[in-house]
Measured scan of single mutants.
Amino acid sequence: MTEYKLVVVGAGGVGKSALTIQLIQNHFVDEYDPTIEDSYRKQVVIDGETCLLDILDTAGQEEYSAMRDQYMRTGEGFLCVFAINNTKSFEDIHHYREQIKRVKDSEDVPMVLVGNKCDLPSRTVDTKQAQDLARSYGIPFIETSAKTRQGVDDAFYTLVREIRKHKEKMSKDGKKKKKKSKTKCVIM
């Protein structure tokens, strides 16, 4: 069974824990209790493949930012979460993405942009803004509501699919490099 290491990042209060708990335990946590770091595991079937999701729910508070490099190193894919009623959390996505790329030393890291709290009427981040940002990053965008469960499975499952595509691409690139290195030079 394939294991996928997913990391949920975003500013404090955007609903990272609520999304994760909704996926794992099928219930909505409405009281806000700032996370330092929590880890969850769940076995699911995605596109006919049974897999184990190892999900790291991270601290959004700035005082825990020193811990970010460590979990970013171990993560295979990242859910970059903002709240649709919090423009600052949307603007912060850029910083999370840049930090992930720096730590992973790669421009090509599996990510999904997630606009959470889409059940709320007080939207300050337009869907088109988020779609445009995701398009500019070359990553999928999904709106979710941890409260109603809308888009929750889709967000995590899409990230797994992005990781699969990335692994497939990397193995193809690896095979191309191996083929090239088999060419021999004969000096007579």
Rank of each mutant, 00 (worst) to 15 (best):
K180G: 08
K172D: 11
T144F: 00
S136I: 09
D154W: 05
D126Y: 08
S181P: 04
K172E: 15
H166M: 14
S181R: 02
L159D: 04
L133M: 12
R164E: 12
E143L: 03
G151N: 08
L159Q: 01
M170G: 07
T183S: 15
A130Q: 04
M170W: 02
I139W: 01
E162L: 05
V125L: 05
D132F: 04
K184V: 00
L159Y: 00
S145P: 00
K176F: 08
I139T: 05
D153H: 12
G151H: 03
R135I: 03
D153M: 14
F156L: 13
E143G: 00
L159M: 03
E168M: 01
E143F: 00
F156M: 14
I142Y: 04
V125W: 06
T158W: 04
Q129C: 03
R164M: 05
T127A: 11
K167M: 03
K167Q: 11
K178G: 14
K169T: 06
A155Y: 00
A134S: 04
I139A: 07
I139C: 05
A134L: 02
K178N: 13
K178E: 15
C185M: 02
V125A: 07
A130C: 15
D132A: 09
K175L: 12
A130V: 13
A155G: 06
D126P: 05
D154S: 11
H166E: 06
A130I: 15
R161S: 00
L133I: 09
K184R: 02
F156R: 02
F141R: 01
F156C: 07
K176T: 12
V125S: 06
E162V: 04
A155R: 00
V152R: 04
Q129M: 11
V160A: 08
V152Q: 05
I139S: 06
I187R: 15
K128M: 10
M188E: 15
K177R: 09
T158A: 07
E162F: 01
V152M: 13
G151R: 02
K165F: 02
V186A: 14
D126E: 11
K177F: 02
L159S: 01
G151M: 09
V125F: 11
Q131C: 06
K169Y: 01
K182F: 00
Y137R: 04
M188C: 12
F141G: 03
A155H: 00
S136V: 04
K169W: 14
M188P: 15
T148A: 02
H166Q: 05
V125R: 08
K165W: 00
H166Y: 14
G151I: 07
A130D: 03
T158Y: 12
T127Y: 10
S181Q: 05
S145T: 05
A146S: 11
K182L: 02
T148R: 06
S136T: 03
Q150Y: 13
D132E: 15
D132Y: 05
I142L: 10
Q150R: 11
D126Q: 07
G138W: 01
E143C: 04
K165N: 09
T127H: 09
E162G: 04
T144K: 00
D154T: 11
K167G: 08
G151W: 11
L133S: 08
